[in-house]
Nucleic acid binder design. Structure first.
Length: 136
RNA sequence: CGAGUCGGUCAGACGAUCGCUUCGCCCCGGCCUUGGCUGCGGCGGGGAGGAAAGUCCGGGCUCCAUAGGGCAGGGUGCCAGGUAACGCCUGGGGGGCGCGAGCCUACGGAAAGUGCAACAGAAAGGAUACCGCCUGGCCGCUCACGCGGUCCGGUAAGGGUGAAAUGGUGCGGUAAGAGCGCACCGCGCGGCUGGCAACAGGCGCGGCGAUGGUAAACCCCACUCGGAGCAAGACCAAAUAGGAAUCCAUACGCUGCGGCCCGCAGUGGAUUCGGGUAGGUCGCUACAGGCAGGCGGCGACGCCUGUCGCAGAUGAAUGGUCGUCCACGACAGAACCCGGCUUAUCGACCGACUCACUUC
RNA sequence: CGGGGCGUAGCGCAGUCUGGUAGCGCACCACACUGGGGGUGUGGUGGUCGUAGGUUCAAAUCCUGCCGUCCCGA
């Protein structure tokens, strides 16, 4: 994995352009989610955007993860997974919600779950995209 | 060497690689009139804690008047000092614990007033005679000593109740007893000596039926506290515009202002309908600052000199992966800042000291 | 981040200001009425008063520290 990582900085960056920044951005995804990937510890919602790349928003509620250290850890791992994920169209805005008990997982477990859910989500979005095109 | 006390320091390390954020410099581009704003990239520097936590105190800062007077209300509570301030810290005193080094301590006033004390007990606050004990009178029994009953008194030594019963111990004294008398201790009062003081020591006096407990009960005394909080507050764009209805009012009103009155400043206000916002910039980190040395002080700390620049995010940065090593890594993440307190916590190391044992 | 409230029986609540006995409703158990159930009646079981200290003779109650939970403020 990272042992074979190459310095393609453009693909592996994670700046402000790759994040959901305002409450309006979040509301757009929540109100019009086109695809979702659900797991015991995590839920992803996605909606296609008109940006030149994916964007990520994180919701890790204090109610579900009590300690600030654990909340930070979950968010960091999620960003790291997102950063290393394939950046291929269709581009989408994704909101990741953490569920109760996610702080019990260690880094390796959590990373693999996140990657799996991300692939699932990407597949569903492209399916929705093609069926939508067919429908038209 | 074992057991222990006190104070302090650290918070996995190193390397590779991919990222995030901020600052500086440079290159290119855009806006723009001589300089600034902004975008991409490169190089270099900085990037969580001892508790960042709980929000229990104290300040700074901002707005309300420059935070002013009184009432009400809150806080603190042995003494002296430190400090911007404190409920913190230091030193000292009293009390308690420990063989000791040391540790703990809401520790002002109950002879200003009010209140409270269930149950038990004779009596629970300026109270009391239930059982006892004792003198005497009368009655009964008895030869008598005496015993029993009853009555008027005396008595707080003994029993019993209670969390608590009106100083304690001893000797004398007495009908039995009692601070009734004496000694010591305790308590109170008045000088004296030492100490800034809290307080300590010693002397004299008082016989102690006066002055019990509770103030984390009301309260009294002393000192102290105005209110809100960075979602404070300021600015930019937009907006509150403009509007409709009802009610109150033309000032002893209403608002700023959290309880009231005064005072100050400002001025029409309340409710409903309708309509609209929740973007950005600043505040935002350089100070009661860290480190080193010197001087003053028992110490907390203060003064002087030199030196360092040490997070500033805003869906919210300090991380991922791999390798090596070891004691295999606890509690845990800044959100305006600082001083404390409290709570959580794997361990490692340093210094001072105490006790016990052994050896020289 | 800041500002508040609440923890008492299985559940919902009183009692806390003013300290001594923890009480009410539902539920539960037993018995009676009934052929049985339901219902009604009578009696009863059940509480470390969130937790750890302190004050007091005595604490659910007063004071302090923790824990949990809920609400409010853009």
């Amino acid at each position: 994995m990272s042992g074979t990582a190459q310095p393609r900085s453009s693909q592996y960056s994670f700046g402000k352009a790759s994040r959901l920044l305002t409450a309006r951005d979040y509301s757009r995804v929540f109100d019009g989610a086109e695809a979702r990937a659900s797991h015991k510890h995590v839920l992803l919602l996605a909606k296609q955007n008109d940006q030149p790349g994916h964007r990520l928003g994180l919701v890790v509620a204090k109610k579900n993860v009590r300690l600030a250290v654990q909340r930070n850890r979950v968010k960091r791992l999620a960003r790291e997974m997102f950063r290393q994920a394939d950046a291929e169209p269709p581009f989408m805005d994704v909101v990741l919600l953490a569920r109760r008990g996610i702080d019990q997982l260690d880094n390796a477990e959590l990373s693999s779950i996140l990657r799996g859910q991300w692939r699932k989500l990407a597949r569903r979005v492209s399916e929705a995209d093609t069926s939508e095109s067919r429908g038209r």
